[in-house]
């Protein structure tokens, strides 16, 4: 429990608490534990991992600087299409293509951010939404490039029929996204983000240039979405404009907010049980189509009204401060920010 201990130093560097590490280990061994070693369950786990990673990236903007990026799914789709088109037309290696997807998404994020982020938050949400609609329309109509609603076939990342490698890849990507976001949040920049999110006028008075910080936050979040979009493209092997639809953004948004805004880890923690339950509801009660989305909507409304902090706030108030020293170490680690 000594902060100088190398293990603790490593944990601190990766921004994990021992409990978080345990959760990660559980996720790592999950594909070999009996009920979860079936291919369709692993596919569910992968989609949960993707939603979890996206919700971290989404929360980075929504939770820290209080701007809802309503075109998040479309920006992810842009990354996916970029990577897929580059792989298809130029024969670019998909691993590299994913980063190109991140780059184009970041450029789009820069454009949207530079236009809207000098205005109030709601404009940014609307404009990102319209950009998303326009992108989806373009992907539908530019049939010569994207094959439109017919769907574009994309080369997959691995040569196997098994889904397990993809699962480990998305877990690795999730951890990377988390660590990047957390590092930025810990830096001086993250402090500026927090200040802007809490009170923009106060932040401006203390010499923080809100436009610069908001735009850089937005760009990073979009870049992460583009990168994950590349994974989406090369995992599912088929891209349709539907993946950019607003309802996909709503899905990410719901997970991020139920998980707890501003916490970064809340969305990722809640995504796995949540998505698995939803998929279970959807597949077992298939005579009641739409039920799982009704639950989505009700949960989102109830959390927004009665428990705005989401799961993370619940965890922080009720479980974060145990009396027992060992348990305390287990939950909080030794990082300064958790004390």
């Amino acid at each position: 429990m000594d902060p100088k201990n190398p293990i603790n130093k490593l944990l601190d560097l990766l921004c994990f608490t021992p409990a978080g590490l345990l959760a990660l280990v559980v996720l790592l061994v999950l594909p070999v534990v009996p009920p979860f070693n079936q291919e369709y369950l692993i596919r569910w786990l992968i989609s949960a991992g993707l939603i979890a990673s996206l919700s971290i990236g989404f929360d980075f903007t929504a939770g820290l600087i209080n701007i809802v990026n309503f075109g998040y799914a479309a920006i992810m789709g842009l990354g996916g299409y970029t990577s897929a088109i580059l792989a298809d037309r130029l024969g670019l290696n998909p691993w590299f293509g994913m980063f190109m997807g991140a780059l184009t998404a970041a450029i789009l994020g820069l454009i949207i951010g530079a236009i809207t982020l000098r205005l109030r938050g709601i404009f940014a949400a609307c404009l990102a939404w319209f950009f998303g609609l326009a992108l989806m329309g373009l992907a539908t109509k530019m049939v010569w490039l994207t094959r439109g609603p017919l769907g574009m076939r994309v080369e997959r990342l691995f040569d196997t029929a098994s889904n397990v490698p993809y699962y480990y890849l998305i877990l690795a990507m999730m951890v990377t996204v988390y660590v990047i976001c957390k590092w930025v949040k810990r830096s001086r920049m993250g402090m500026a983000f927090n200040a802007i999110g809490q009170n923009m006028e106060a932040a401006r008075t203390s010499g923080i240039n809100p436009v610069f910080y908001r735009v850089s936050n937005f760009v990073l979040s979009c870049a992460l979405a583009g990168w994950l979009g590349g994974f989406y493209a090369h995992f599912y092997g088929i891209l349709t404009p539907d993946m950019m639809h607003t309802s996909k953004t709503v899905e990410i948004l719901a997970v991020a907010y139920i998980g707890g805004r501003g916490s970064l880890w809340g969305g990722a923690a809640i995504a796995f049980p949540f998505i698995l339950t939803m998929e279970l509801v959807r597949s077992s009660l298939s005579n009641l189509p739409g039920l799982h989305l009704v639950i989505y909507g009700i949960l989102l409304i109830v959390v927004m009204i009665y428990y705005p902090g989401g799961f993370a706030a619940f965890f922080d108030t009720h479980l974060r401060k145990p009396k027992n020293k060992v348990v305390n170490y287990f939950i909080n680690g030794t990082a300064m920010e958790n004390r």
Partner: peptide
């Protein structure tokens, strides 16, 4: 506090709820 953004998200939830309740 932060009413515009929060109410916007509420309407998003409401929209999802109503669309799927119709389907249900």
């Amino acid at each position: 506090e932060n009413w515009v953004m929060n109410s916007f998200l509420l309407t998003v939830g409401l929209s999802v709820l109503m669309i799927n309740a119709h389907q249900l």
